[in-house]
Write a protein that binds this DNA or RNA. Structure first.
Lengths: 218, 218
DNA sequence: CAAACTTGTTTAAAATTTTAACAAAGTATA
DNA sequence: TATACTTTGTTAAAATTTTAAACAAGTTTG
């Protein structure tokens, strides 16, 4: 580790991407790579890669480049992927169900330990190795297990109240799939707002303006 | 409409958020709002809102502010939400299923007209008012229906080949839920990469660095 | 009519990204 | 071993983008 300064958000957001490319290279059996070659693969400049990595320390070697497995592990450490933050999923509808089964939480610093829904038709359902519990049990569950993260897959109108309640129960981070914006500058609370609807609208804009997009790339 | 210059990506990405807040205000029956009040609600500056909107024209009135319904409609027009781009969903696993049922495509410029999967156990399944078709039928379907958008909810290893094939079949935009990065500077192709895994890793970093996050907000 | 608002627009400041450059340290090779 | 080559870490500077501030001009309101 090197600097004590605040690392900028754009840099942080690029780390998972580096991690992905390095994982792929690792799986392909590649041993080492230079910032130059990685940059052409990723569509960045070598300079940016070196500068991003240098926010955290020097992981490469002059004349050699980066050892892929080592760099992969280093970035994993920076992201803290070996954490085991306990997570609860609130809302086990279609989306919640998919989120619970689709993401590899264990590889990304989380341990999904509880799923809750208010719909009696869903309560009791088995998802992965968890049984959906009633929302009525959420409070007691939090007192017992002290999860640190909540994944919100509930209707937007309940988001604000639910988030407030969860904060009072000790939740420290939200992965928010509702349309509601959870304030990102809440005291000591971490928030990732996903907002799939926004993404879809952005795509709509892009398609409507493809000519301009081309213009931009020139 | 006003300027011919290219509007920057961050501005575009904020439009759906404005749209959301205005929709909420509209539903609450509020008639008008000033950039000042909207800014405090959204946690932005009034200046930024006025400058963002001015990329597209002047929709307000001095001394009055903005008419909420009018501004809501204007932003909808800018985004092109009344388009009816034909969309196909590739991959009807948990995630694809959720995406198909959870998003209100009609309100966001799209019309989901086909769902495809290669798993025989899934083909024939009913999702909303659509029946899952076999991937073998995709090509013919595209030739018949000419969809302009593809939603990718398939394993990452098939993403590249599938995207290439779809482009050759006339697809103009991708909503990509795979881990693979679809090149965003492809000819005249629009891409929205969702990358839920990246988002989760970013959340992990944030929680591991909550102290620093607080520091940042000071 | 005058005071209070609030926009559209300009100008300035701040932050971020990109590019360039290069000494130092390693690798490869003869 | 010596020499040429590679490539990092780091600094500095330029370019771009984003954010904020400021204000004239037009509206509303009492």
């Amino acid at each position: 580790m090197k600097k004590n300064e605040q690392v900028s958000t754009p840099v942080i957001k690029r780390l998972p991407r580096y991690h992905r490319y390095l994982e792929e290279l690792k799986n392909m059996g590649v041993i080492r790579i230079s910032s130059k070659e990685l940059s052409t693969r990723m569509g960045l400049t070598a300079s940016q890669i070196r500068q991003d990595l240098n926010c955290f320390g020097g992981f490469g070697q002059q004349g050699y480049g980066y050892n892929i497995e080592q760099l992969y592990n280093e970035i994993g450490n920076i992201l803290g992927l070996s954490s085991k933050f306990k997570a609860v999923l609130i809302g086990a509808g279609n989306l919640g169900h998919a989120v619970a089964t689709h993401l590899r939480f264990e590889d990304r610093g989380f341990d999904l330990i509880g799923i809750f829904d208010s719909n009696p038709a869903v309560v009791g359902q088995q998802i992965g190795n968890l049984t959906v519990l009633s929302s009525d049990e959420l409070e007691q569950f939090c007192l017992n297990e002290s999860p640190s993260v909540a994944i919100l897959c509930i209707p937007s109108e309940y988001a604000d109240a639910t988030a407030k309640k969860l904060v009072s129960l000790g939740i420290k981070g939200f992965w928010n799939f509702t349309q509601y914006d959870i304030a990102t500058n809440y005291k000591g609370i971490a928030v990732e707002n996903v907002h799939l609807g926004d993404s879809l609208m952005t795509l709509c804009y892009q398609i409507n303006n493809i000519d301009n997009i081309d213009e931009e790339t020139k």
